[in-house]
């Protein structure tokens, strides 16, 4: 073992080759399940019932994808997800920018202790507030509504934390120069500082959108009516027992169809998404 390791490290070439082979092998393990699903989605249901091995040879078909257009609730769910994730993202950006500016730049009684309390909120997992939230929303008749799906996410402290850090990093001379010109606090925020925070807005916006799009727990217990399902919950509701499923190909086509938008988004905004997700994790 140690012998093999030392030779592969001493000889750079062969060492590199072993590492590369491992990376490729692992990548195949990563990709194979996805290819399998895409393959199944391109086959007739009847053919799959007989034998899934048929996925390795033609004929292929796009019937399953065409069927999505007519018979599936997927579009309603995508619309719901767009409204919920889009709404949450916009409101989060507004709230977090205002609060970030307030905490970073302005002085008001109890500011520092309030900021610490908000930071402590980062340690509260969703599960610890889930049951009480569900009760409150029940009393306010907010279940099965877009407000009900959006509001809980607005309390997440991460955005405020991120924006506060970002505002603090902007030189104070900018504010002071504007103050000498008799600009109001809001004007300074809106005209001078906010345009400088665009990178942070992008990071926070992408993270919030992605998180909300993929959220499963709250939408599952709050949006219980089929027409209020988000895409994530709706897709989960269609997953019945495969063994009895005659629509295997159709189910797989739905999965590909539901996963594709976010993967395409990832292709275009890869850099931002990676920064957003890793930034949120480190906090």
């Amino acid at each position: 073992m140690s012998n093999a390791r030392s030779t592969s490290i001493m000889g750079r070439e062969s060492g590199d080759r072993v590492v590369l082979l491992l990376v490729i092998a692992l990548a195949l393990v990563m990709v194979a399940p996805v290819l399998w699903v895409i393959g199944l989605s391109l086959k007739h249901n009847a053919e799959l019932m007989a034998n899934t091995n048929s996925v390795f040879y033609p004929p292929y078909t796009i019937t399953n994808y065409i069927n999505i257009l007519g018979t599936s609730s997927v579009f309603r769910w995508i619309l719901n997800s767009l409204i919920v994730s889009g709404g949450l993202t916009i409101f989060t950006l507004v709230l977090a920018s205002l609060a970030g500016y307030g905490f970073a730049r302005l002085n008001f009684p109890g500011r520092d202790i309030l900021f610490i309390i908000v930071l402590l909120g980062l340690a509260v997992p969703e599960q610890a507030v889930l049951i009480a939230r569900h009760q409150i929303f029940g009393m306010l008749k907010l279940h099965n509504s877009y407000q009900g799906l959006i509001l809980p996410g607005l309390s997440a402290p991460f955005g405020v934390f991120l924006m506060t850090q970002y505002f603090r990093a902007i030189p104070k001379e900018l504010d002071e120069a504007a103050l000498l010109d008799n600009a109001s606090r809001f004007t300074i925020f809106w005209k001078v500082l906010l345009p400088l925070t665009v990178p942070a807005q992008a990071t926070l916006g992408i993270f919030t959108f992605l998180w909300s799009w993929n959220d499963y727990l709250w939408p599952l217990i709050s949006g219980t009516k089929k027409e209020m399902f988000t895409l994530t919950v709706g897709m989960a509701s269609t997953q019945t027992n495969f063994a009895q499923s005659e629509g295997l190909g159709f189910l797989m086509a739905q999965a590909v169809f539901a996963g594709a938008p976010i993967l395409i988004l990832y292709l275009f905004f890869q850099k931002y998404i990676v920064t957003a997700v890793s930034g949120a994790a480190v906090r």
Partner: peptide, 21 residues
């Protein structure tokens, strides 16, 4: 007056996080 900037967020923080906790 300056607290007005953080008030909107704090409203949601208190009602959706602190209170349920």
């Amino acid at each position: 007056r300056n607290a007005l900037f953080v008030a909107p967020y704090l409203f949601f923080f208190v009602t959706m996080l602190v209170f349920p906790l």
